Computed example of a mutant assay.
Amino acid sequence: MANPIITDAKERMTKAGDALQRDLQNIRAGRANAGILNRVQADYYGAMTPISQMASITVPEARVLLITPYDKTSLDAIEKAIYASDLGLTPSNDGSSIRLVIPQLTEERRKELAKDVKGEAENAKVSVRNVRRDAMDTLKKQQKASEITEDDLHDLEDQVQKATDAGIKNIDAIAKDKEEELLNI
């Protein structure tokens, strides 16, 4: 039977990788990706609403996002929200939809974004290591309280370490994929 501490640690390490993947979606790679608008919210009848809930977002060309609002009256609010966001993109409003042209990244900017990816990956690794530390502490407390034997403690510590190694390997793979996406022209 799997120990609940190990199961919880594995789950939390997986969530660290998932969070890294979500964070890396917001780093644009010179290609249109609807994910860059995930955190942009517009004022829709007094409520801040994600653009993805107010409009359909399509990718008609490799470097163009087309935002077509379900309610045409929200077009100006969406445009203002994109201007106010930190995306650095200028929306082009044609009266019924908004086009966002993603500029081609310079080599210098690509390398800068690759460094950002490494920083995000390092933060995710720290999270995984914190989960390992918490699990190890809990296991040692159980052993001191005579809930598990010393042999069980060593076996469970090995399982935690294997889960940690797998979690870090997963994070490295996610970061490597994103770096390759950024650095390939």
Rank of each mutant, 00 (worst) to 15 (best):
T49Y: 10
T14R: 06
P91I: 04
R12C: 07
E108H: 02
E150P: 00
M54R: 00
E157F: 10
E147H: 02
P103H: 02
K178V: 05
L139C: 04
H154I: 14
L89D: 11
Y45V: 13
D94N: 06
H154F: 14
P50R: 02
A42F: 03
L24F: 05
K144E: 15
D71F: 00
P4K: 03
Q25H: 07
I185E: 15
A121Q: 00
K80I: 01
D165L: 02
L24H: 01
I27T: 07
K111G: 15
I27G: 08
Q21R: 15
E61C: 09
D165M: 02
S97H: 05
L66T: 12
N184E: 14
E61Y: 05
D158L: 15
G119F: 03
S127E: 12
R110N: 05
E79I: 00
L156N: 08
K80D: 15
R12P: 06
Q53E: 12
E11I: 03
A175D: 11
R39M: 09
E107M: 01
K176G: 09
I27P: 04
R28H: 06
A29V: 14
V59I: 10
I5D: 05
E147V: 11
L153E: 10
V59P: 07
A16W: 08
D43F: 01
R28M: 01
T7H: 09
R109M: 08
I51H: 03
M13D: 11
I102S: 02
I102V: 13
I51L: 11
N38A: 13
G119S: 15
I57R: 00
L139W: 07
I67K: 04
R31K: 07
D76S: 12
D177C: 08
P103A: 06
G167C: 14
A2T: 13
A55K: 04
T68F: 05
D165Y: 10
Q25I: 15
L182A: 14
D134Y: 03
T14I: 01
T106R: 03
E61L: 06
Y83Q: 09
N130K: 10
I27L: 12
R39K: 14
K162S: 15
L153F: 12
P103D: 08
K162Q: 14
A173K: 10
E120I: 00
D177T: 07
L66F: 07
A84Y: 05
